[in-house]
């Protein structure tokens, strides 16, 4: 299918102003798999993703794609290999879905080259994959939140990159649309071998859909690996500062995290008798 690219961070430190957000972090993104970055609010998840797509220059260290430092690669060349869907992209007023998806073709077009049949085919395929073909001639303003998110993903697909980074692609979506978007990304990963890296705030959806989890805590990589290895009660405590129980998800067989708060928790003896 696709040639697999290697994406890694080496001794990466990131920050804004005086604040250090990520501190000398090393990680490797497994090629051709789905990776989820999880962690508490403001732990640097989005910052890390932004730096991996060269939106933020590293203080020290580097992000390496196929042995080359991404911050030194030509912008257009990088954009043909690595795509990013930011958390809140802006749709110009009145823009038609087909045109918006077509803007994903930007890195494939020269300054004066005309739009060609290959571009049309890429847009049509992206619309089809995301189930937005019937919306192609509609204005973006008329769509629901779930439809809009699918159109944005279609734009990223039209970019035809082997690596796709997404910053919280399920935010603002209801449960069914969240599952729909994650199913779609899994389809893409399975059909095309696209390497998917996404920031997810829902730990259980991450455990369900990701092959590989990167758990960040206070700017460092606390744990990484398959969900079954990474997701433990200790990890949840370290990363989110939350007590929890991990059980086997009866639907997927993957780990499922049940948070333990101050309310609505059975007294210990009842819980232990349930465990017997």
């Amino acid at each position: 299918m696709t040639t697999h690219h290697s994406l890694a961070a080496e001794g990466l430190s990131l920050g804004y102003g005086d604040r250090t957000v990520i501190d000398s972090l090393d990680l490797v993104v497994p090629p051709g798999r789905i990776t989820a970055i999880v962690g508490a609010n403001a732990c640097g998840k989005s910052t890390l993703l932004r730096s991996m797509s060269r939106l933020l220059a590293p203080r020290t260290g580097r992000v390496v794609l196929d042995g080359k430092e991404v911050h030194r690669m030509p912008a257009r060349q990088l954009a043909r290999t690595l795509g990013l869907l930011p958390q809140s992209p802006v749709a110009p007023e009145g823009i038609i879905v087909g045109d918006l998806v077509g803007r994903g073709r930007h890195p494939h077009q020269g300054m004066f080259s005309r739009w060609n049949a290959e571009d049309d085919a890429a847009v049509a395929a992206a619309l089809e994959t995301t189930g937005t073909t019937p919306l192609a001639d509609r204005a973006m303003d008329e769509l629901s939140g779930g439809q809009r998110q699918r159109v944005w993903i279609a734009m990223a697909l039209a970019q035809h990159t082997d690596i796709l980074l997404l910053d919280e692609p399920t935010t603002f979506l209801d449960a069914s649309h969240q599952v729909e978007v994650l199913d779609l990304l899994t389809d893409l990963n399975q059909a095309r071998g696209t390497t998917v890296v996404m920031v997810l705030h829902d730990l259980n959806l991450a455990a369900r859909y990701a092959d590989h989890i990167l758990a960040l805590a206070e700017g460092r990589l606390h744990a990484s690996g398959p969900p079954a290895e990474v997701l433990s009660e200790d990890t949840v405590r370290a990363v989110f500062g939350l007590d929890s129980r991990i059980i086997e998800d009866p639907v997927s067989g993957r780990p499922l995290m049940l948070p333990i708060g101050r309310h609505h928790v059975r007294p210990p003896q009842a819980a232990s008798s349930a465990g017997r």
Binding site: A79, L84, L85, P89, V90, L100
Partner: peptide, 11 residues
């Protein structure tokens, strides 16, 4: 027009 982040991601 799609925002600076999206534009950068498009090269």
């Amino acid at each position: 027009q799609l925002g600076d982040d999206t534009a950068s991601a498009l090269g």
